[in-house]
Design a protein around this nucleic acid. Structure first.
Lengths: 201, 201
DNA sequence: CCTTTTTTCTATAGATCTATAGAATTCCTA
DNA sequence: TAGGAATTCTATAGATCTATAGAAAAAAGG
């Protein structure tokens, strides 16, 4: 049957995407050779082209894989009915956890996607800005509910959360001993309360 | 005279470093060809080797240039006798301003330094962690002076500041219309006060 | 067990890239 | 303006690297 074969094919293809992610993450898109990717898969260089039309297509697949379920999770959080603080914790948790789970592909998405041709890049960009907009909406709702200071700029806030998470995500990828949950707690505390005493405000 | 010649040479060499920075920033180390760098300088590919022993040496020089005065400024701030908040503002200002001034080289330092051979990489790493430690010390002093919440983790705080600044630095490099001083204000406000109301603490 | 489909391999064309060597040119200075 | 130093050029060796074509091997199915 078709479905079984497709399934098997996509399993192997998924492995190929994983191998590509690993090499792209380590060497960058241009520094990674198709030979190195094939070797990681246990096949010869030329055979890789059974799975990808080009090296560029492989990059596209890796980036897509890297950001996909990360965006899905954000949507789920944004559409849920938790209170603001819980949502914020969930966002940070989801973001950092994504790094640990599929660190390589997400790193590739962040660092190498600009080498994709314009068309694919804009497609991925839509996904990425959907992520940011969902996050922005979480802040807007909290602002409307007077949970945040009226001076908060929601666009800035969303970028700050993403920037903070990406920065820690990078450190998490490099050092597997970092305690994610400690980071999550400290990040959310920073975002809500800052480092200063209340009296100083 | 030697000094005049050296001066002229180093001017030209500085231009070569700038051209390399520009191409490395746009294409990444492996994606940048020596031909492209030479073209940007207005010379032929082979002539570039009058200034650099290898492409790798060029990367090293660019990274060094990118981080150098950025570290010097941090030292000046850390050793000054300003109050904590002023220091924090100065750090964020210095960091973001560095991005705007020598954006390309600093971006290359952040994104491409891992492709340097181990020896040079550790040398640069020392500069980088010197930066982080100075920043950490600023937080430690403020903690000792009870200006910060006792729960603040200074190592985390320093990384958070750097991460936040780098994230915004990236956006600043991409979009020259961003108002840096607005970002500086919002960043420091976030770091000290967070996004939440005081009552919620 | 034979046929068909899927997957991998070998071999290679064609392009590109780094680094070097030695010639040519430009620039300075006495 | 002649001689020496600094800078750039040309040409190329040698090592990649991507992508393709067609043969071979492995797997699936009746």
């Amino acid at each position: 049957m078709n479905s079984i074969q497709d399934n098997k094919y996509s399993q192997q293809r998924q492995a190929a995407i994983g191998a590509a992610a690993s090499v792209f993450a380590a060497k960058g898109f241009h520094g990674a050779s198709t030979k190195a990717i094939a070797e990681k898969l246990g096949i010869k260089q030329g055979s890789l082209y059974y799975y990808f039309k080009s090296k560029e297509e492989a990059l596209g697949e890796v980036c897509l894989f890297g950001i996909q379920n990360y965006v899905q999770r954000m949507d789920a959080i944004a559409n849920s009915s938790q209170p603001f603080e819980a949502k914020l914790v969930a966002v940070v948790t989801s973001h950092l956890t994504s790094y640990r789970e599929r660190n390589e592909a997400l790193k590739v998405y962040n660092d190498e996607r600009l080498y994709l041709p314009k068309e694919k890049r804009t497609k991925l960009k839509e996904l990425g800005s959907g992520y940011r907009q969902s996050l922005e909406r979480i802040f807007e709702d909290a602002l409307a509910a007077a949970i945040l200071k009226p001076s908060v700029d929601c666009h800035f806030a969303a970028q700050a959360v993403i920037g903070l998470c990406n920065a820690w995500g990078d450190l998490i990828v490099r050092d597997p001993n970092i305690d994610i949950y400690e980071i999550i707690e400290k990040c959310t505390d920073l975002l809500i309360n800052g480092f200063g005493y209340s009296e100083h405000k």
